[in-house]
Design a protein around this nucleic acid. Structure first.
Length: 595
RNA sequence: GGUCCGGUAGCUCAACUGGAUAGAGCAUCAGAUUUCUAAUCUGACGGUUCGGGGUUCGAUUCCCUGCCGGAUCACCA
């Protein structure tokens, strides 16, 4: 049964019967801990209809519900708040339908399609902590929509083209001595990243030298020999010079291999990859088409611009004077290409840091001006930077936290703690490794996902490896403990069936509370989808685990002599484990059978 | 300077989109294992929700203003 709907309908009936008026909007919220009840109707807004004080209004509705609804057993009124006590038999019924539904928490396909873009790194640097937040967020949002019945396409755009990759290429050519991942054993993305740093180092040294010889800083920036080489390579690449394209392919290949292993460990995946080198030309075409149709304009030097001043923004360049494309150009092309590839998607979600808010505002406006209606359904999932206790991550200062290193540290630390606690009796080393990986990554993902994406967050390494409290492992542990109960029940031959559950007529407060939470799961998922916030699900899972632990501690299940109650509690535990698993699943976190 | 975010317990974060005496975790202190996993549970301590105005039955939430922090405003990505 759908309790929320039933309750809402009953209250609407009450209002109609008592005050002879219809209401659409009802404010129903969870009852505060200090009062009896689970659902609270806020009655202040109803006083206009009832023409009575808030307390009398609440009392009248409460009395009506107890007599007529068949759901509400008692009520109390505090100021304008009507606190409702749902009858235990109703709770049992609610639970029964959840228990009977194997696919609880997974809605049927609704025929709608969306696309979620995330990750989208540059190919000149290895992935770091910021990418982890990005990937976990994007992946989770996609999984949340998927659970709600949407068909979701996970994609990314790979910025494989442009001056940045040419910088790595230039440095490699000058100082690489033919180094490859095979020759040095270095992971491909790390190797290319090394030469990007190498470029920067030499570039700065050359600039300094030129400035000392009396050149202006601005000129030195352009005239440094290594930069001239990078620019030359970019031009050669655009002209499809064979040797340059070869090197470009080789170096990008190394990066992709490196990224692939990182993604695999992160547990994220993509349906389709888009490459800037394949989309920028389409973007260029679209821009030129826009010039013809008068949406954009050309300046004397040949550069193409869009004027967004009437939208409160500035003028923005779309093609350089020499006809080459900028970042915006390729994003236009990519967006259009994606809607051609997946004509049924209604919109796109771009998981990109908040420093690009302006960029996406402009992009969506441009697409709209080009006449694409779907532009309005595009959403920039903008998230805050991840700070370290020492402040911002800065590549120049070497304070960047590498994604591979961090995952390894988390797994190592989880293993250390797992062995210290010493519950792994009988487990093989490989099993302990697997478990530690699950716990370490669970801790990391939960840590990054529990915070509202919009907010900038602090990553404290010491706190992130904590496995107690508001953490992923806390939830994983709760799941493992429940599984132990289920195993025991099975070995005892206790297997609850749907029809047996209704033999239970009264519940413990802790049980009621947990059924309430479980029943709210879909609402939470929807809320998370609406706000593009996995944090909603993360906090739900944590609250559910906490609620269950409270029950676990206060009620020893197998001491129960009443068979009906025993079976109910086994079923109840099973459902909690299932919902914990599913909610963690959409966060990309696995849960163990034992830990 | 313009625009956009953010400021909540010592620290990290919540607060159902305007509702009750603002909640968790960590840290600190005090307790709980002959019983299903103590990576757990129960208490205690901890607040001028950045300051000041306003809107109303009611404000952490909306408006104005000031302060602090961040992002952004490139023929970069």
């Amino acid at each position: 049964m759908n309790l929320d709907l039933a309750l809402r309908t009953s209250i609407q009936q009450a209002v109609t019967a008592l005050f002879n008026q219809q209401v659409e909007q009802l404010q129903i919220q969870p009852t505060n801990q200090e009062f009896e009840g689970s659902h609270t109707l806020v009655c202040f807004p109803l006083t206009k209809i009832s023409k009575k004080g808030p307390e009398q209004t609440a009392t009248a509705i409460g009395e009506y519900l107890v007599v007529n609804s068949g759901i509400v057993s008692r009520f109390n009124v505090v100021k304008g708040f009507l606190n409702l006590v749902i009858a235990d038999k109703v709770w049992v019924e609610v639970f029964q339908s959840i228990f009977a539904n194997k696919n609880f928490g997974l809605l049927e396909k609704n025929g709608r399609e969306v696309m979620v873009e995330y990750s989208s790194p540059n190919t000149n640097k290895p992935l770091h902590l910021g990418h982890l937040r990005n990937n976990f967020l994007g992946y989770s949002v996609a999984e949340i929509y998927n659970a709600l019945g949407f068909t979701v396409h996970k994609v990314q755009i790979i910025n494989d083209r442009g001056i940045h990759i040419c910088k790595s290429m230039a440095a490699w050519k000058l100082y690489g001595n033919g180094e490859t991942p095979q020759s040095s054993g270095l992971k491909g993305d790390k190797l290319v990243g090394k030469y990007y740093v190498e470029f920067d180092k030499n570039y700065k040294a050359q600039m300094k030298e030129l400035v000392e010889k009396g050149m202006s800083e601005a000129e030195a920036e352009k005239k440094a020999p290594i930069m001239l080489l990078a620019v030359e390579m970019l031009q050669k690449w655009e002209a499809k010079d064979e040797a340059t394209v070869q090197l470009w392919k080789a170096m990008n290949g190394w990066v992709y291999d490196g990224f692939e292993s990182t993604y695999k460990r992160m547990g994220v995946d993509f349906e389709k990859l888009y490459y800037e080198s394949n989309t920028y030309l389409l973007g260029k075409e679209e821009v030129l088409r826009g010039v013809e149709s008068g949406v954009f304009f050309k300046k004397e030097d040949g550069s193409v611009w869009v004027d967004l001043t009437s939208d409160g923004l500035d003028q923005k360049v779309l093609l350089r004077g020499d006809g080459t494309s900028v970042y915006m150009t390729q994003d236009i092309g990519t967006a259009i290409l994606r809607f051609r590839d997946f004509p049924k998607i209604e919109g796109q979600v771009y998981t990109v840091g908040n420093e690009q808010e302006y960029h996406f505002k402009v992009l969506f406006l441009i697409l709209k001006k080009l006449g694409y209606k779907w532009a309005e359904k595009c959403y920039h999932l903008s998230y805050g930077m991840v700070d370290l206790p020492s402040g911002k991550m800065k590549s120049r200062e070497g304070t960047v936290v590498d994604a591979d290193d961090l995952m390894q540290e988390m797994a190592d630390d989880a293993e250390k703690q797992t062995r210290e606690i010493g519950k792994t009796e009988g487990a093989t080393d490989a099993e302990i490794k697997d478990l530690s990986e699950m716990i370490g990554l669970g801790a990391l993902k939960f840590f990054l996902l529990k915070v509202d994406p919009k907010k900038r967050m602090l990553f404290d390494p010491n706190e992130s490896i904590q496995l107690q409290g508001h953490t992923g492992p806390f939830i994983q542990y709760t799941h493992a403990r429940i599984r132990a109960i289920i195993r025991k029940a099975e070995s005892m031959g206790v297997k609850p069936t749907k029809s047996e559950l209704t033999q239970v007529t009264s519940l413990e407060p802790a049980e009621r509370e947990v059924v309430f939470m479980v029943n709210n799961y879909i609402n939470k998922l929807s809320e998370a989808a609406r706000d593009y916030s996995p944090a909603v699900v993360a906090n739900f899972a944590f609250d559910l685990a906490k609620g269950y632990n409270h029950f676990y501690q206060s009620i020893p299940i197998f001491n129960e002599t009443d068979q009906a109650k025993l079976k109910f509690r086994i079923a109840f535990s099973q459902v909690v484990a299932d919902v914990l698993k599913k909610s963690m699943r959409v966060l990309g976190i696995q849960v163990p059978e034992k830990m």
